[in-house]
């Protein structure tokens, strides 16, 4: 097990290196002098030089990378070009809102997906199954920003059941916080709901056909016991993979949803920064997104082994 973890970590090193190079190069991918892009019309030589110095653009590229990565590792993610605030600080400030949104979206998606997927699998061909399949297809085809807009129109603008926009920190007022997070979380969670349900259903169908399920029945276990004790734990193993990747991809979904709901999280920070040409902030968010995704991948692999005792870490 330890060797496996170590090997996975070693394998991650070159990938992590390439990822950081990629994120670092983001600024240099921009055609022309980044300083000119950042400054727009106001391009006095002093201003350009200042930007160059700020970004370290006057040094050779590899030196710039080494300085940058050294800073990043030590928690210095640079300063925002527009506000001159530390990037790390700006991100941490916005992170709780994104995490709350992501966690609620995930819980919502699992609360819908696992029971529905299980029932759909157990009662194949029933109304529930057809409903589940319908949701699964629609969920991955309808863009989540569009779902968000429809939700706003139906539940907020028309029915006035939920407030539109605005974020209340959870620990400040849990109830209000949940009321505000409900719509964006549903919008964000829909794609995940569809995918998780599809996985739960197909995995459950597969497991229910296996020999050990018949063994459990032969012991006199009730259907409920068979489904929930014998089948579900096995059936959820593949679902864990998908959920893990969804956790890692929280920021990705948040970019769009936060824009729709004017939710003050990391995703919206990224979009605002793109329009403000605040590349250091964009860089920071992308780096965070990539790393949380990579770590989630690793954790998923490890958890998988813990859930499925058959997998050996030889």
């Amino acid at each position: 097990m330890t060797t496996y973890v170590l090997r996975r970590l070693v394998l991650m090193v070159p990938v992590a290196f390439l990822v950081t190079v990629g994120v670092f190069m983001l600024i240099h991918l921009t055609p022309g002098d980044p300083a000119l892009i950042i400054l727009g019309e106001d391009r006095s030589p002093q201003a350009i030089a200042q930007i160059h110095q700020e970004l370290g653009l006057d040094k050779p590229l590899y030196v710039q990378y080494v300085i940058w990565i050294d800073n990043v590792v030590h928690g210095d993610w640079g300063r925002s070009i527009t506000t001159h605030e530390p990037v790390a600080g700006a991100i941490t400030e916005r992170l709780p809102a994104t995490i709350e949104l992501g966690v609620v979206a995930l819980i919502w998606s699992l609360l819908v997906a696992i029971p529905l997927g299980t029932v759909a699998a157990v009662r194949r061909g029933s109304v529930v199954d057809k409903l589940a399949t319908g949701i699964a297809v629609a969920g991955v085809s309808v863009p989540n920003f569009f779902i968000g807009i429809v939700l706003i129109f139906v539940l907020s603008v028309s029915a006035r059941l939920f407030p539109f926009g605005g974020y209340v920190p959870f620990f400040q007022d849990p109830w209000e916080s949940l009321r505000h997070v409900a719509l964006p979380a549903i919008a964000l969670g829909t794609a995940g709901t569809a995918i998780n349900m599809r996985f739960t259903r197909s995995s459950m169908i597969e497991v229910l056909g296996l020999d050990y399920i018949r063994t459990a029945r032969a012991k006199g276990a009730s259907w409920r016991r068979v489904v929930f004790i014998h089948a579900l734990k096995n059936a959820l193993i593949p679902v864990v993979t998908i959920v893990g990747l969804q956790i890692g991809g929280i920021i990705e979904g948040a970019v769009v949803t936060e824009t729709v709901f004017t939710w003050p999280g990391v995703g919206r920070l990224a979009v605002e920064s793109i329009f403000n040409r605040d590349y250091t902030v964009v860089q920071g968010v992308v780096l965070l997104a990539a790393f949380s995704y990579m770590v989630a991948n690793l954790v998923v692999d490890l958890v998988y082994g813990w859930l499925d005792p058959r997998i050996s870490y030889a």
């Binding site: 990938v15 990705e252 769009v256 793109i274 992308v286 997104a289 990539a290 995704y293």
Partner: peptide, 10 residues
């Protein structure tokens, strides 16, 4: 290693 949309946006 990048989430797909993040990569596209970046």
């Amino acid at each position: 290693a990048f989430p797909a949309l993040i990569l596209a946006i970046a």
